[in-house]
């Protein structure tokens, strides 16, 4: 049966609306961003396109002489290096603990740990800002009762980054715990039974059965968490605006501030491309490491 032209076009009517929107708001913008990162586009260029000047690599060279940008790279590196391992370690621990039992209590705890993940970042950031308040916040009150503190939390450059990390880790545990839990429940019971007969203790079983069986989910969580932390934005935006003294500013927030507060669109686009490159490199490294691990 020969297909008519009409039949040939039908599949496209299903996929085209979504594809056009993705092209317009995801793919084409990449190229526009790349082009404007070589221009001095600002608020005047926005109104009158003839005012836009190509300035070559000037944005990029300027970025690497901009102490605020360099600081934001260091801060983002700090977030990634501390935050990503913490998220993986803690969500894996919670998943293993919850996997101990199947009854109502353990199912309820799964709900409890997942809740922070679905709630609005702005709302929880507002709540944590209140809890971090040095004089009337909950945390210093509680620590004061056991004779610790008061801690400056968000108001001191030395502790502010860590305070943001604590909040973000708290929020990230739930989703990753679910991913680990799904993988844990897929490990055949017979493996553990055999190990038990061989006299392997709990820790040996965890090291030689549980962790190797989880290698794909650990890889998945590492990559998605890494990408997420490279784009760390909501928490510093709501809680510290990048301060005090730029100590919590992230690259993503730097891009936002330059683009939408100072209207330096070209400069901000260049900053966003530096971030994009870093994400791609980090992801590729992860894929390489994963391949190497599987090869052994």
């Amino acid at each position: 049966m020969a297909k008519t032209l009409r039949d040939k076009l039908i599949p496209y009517t299903f996929v085209l609306p979504a594809l056009l929107l993705l092209a317009l708001f995801s793919l084409i913008p990449i190229f526009i961003a790349l082009i404007i990162s070589f221009t001095g586009l600002d608020i005047t260029g926005l109104g009158d396109w003839s005012q836009i000047k190509f300035i070559g690599l000037q944005n990029y060279t300027q970025l690497f002489h901009d102490s605020a940008f360099l600081q934001s790279i260091l801060n983002t590196g700090y977030y990634v290096i501390i935050g990503v391992p913490l998220v993986i370690l803690l969500s894996l621990t919670v998943a293993i603990l919850i996997n101990f039992g199947q009854n109502r209590f353990f199912r309820f705890m799964r709900l409890v740990f997942y809740t922070p993940s679905i709630t609005n970042t702005v709302a929880v950031a507002v709540v944590w800002t209140y809890m971090y308040n040095p004089s009337m916040g909950l945390l210093n009150n509680l620590f004061g009762k056991i004779g610790l503190g008061p801690f400056p939390w968000l108001s001191d450059p030395a502790t502010a980054k860590m305070s943001l990390i604590i909040l973000a880790v708290w929020k990230a545990i739930g989703l990753n715990m679910l991913i680990f839990l799904a993988a844990l429940q897929g490990i055949p019971e017979s493996l553990y039974e055999a190990a038990e007969l061989d006299g392997a203790g709990w820790w040996q079983q965890t090291r030689h059965i549980t962790l190797p069986s989880l290698s794909f989910s650990i890889f998945f969580v590492t990559v998605t968490t890494l990408i997420g932390w490279f784009q760390f934005f909501d928490e510093p935006f709501v809680m510290t605006k990048g301060g005090p003294l730029n100590s919590t500013n992230s690259v993503a927030l730097f891009v936002y501030q330059n683009g939408f507060q100072n209207s330096n669109f070209g400069y901000a686009a260049a900053g966003s491309f530096v971030m994009f490159t870093a994400i791609i490199i980090a992801t590729l490294v992860q894929f390489k490491l994963q391949k190497k691990q599987q090869g052994i």
Binding site: L46, V255, G259, S272
Partner: peptide, 14 residues
């Protein structure tokens, strides 16, 4: 794979 921060400026311009 595309981060929101890369597309936010061009999408705003579009």
């Amino acid at each position: 794979m595309i981060p929101g921060q890369v597309t936010m400026i061009p999408v705003y311009l579009i």
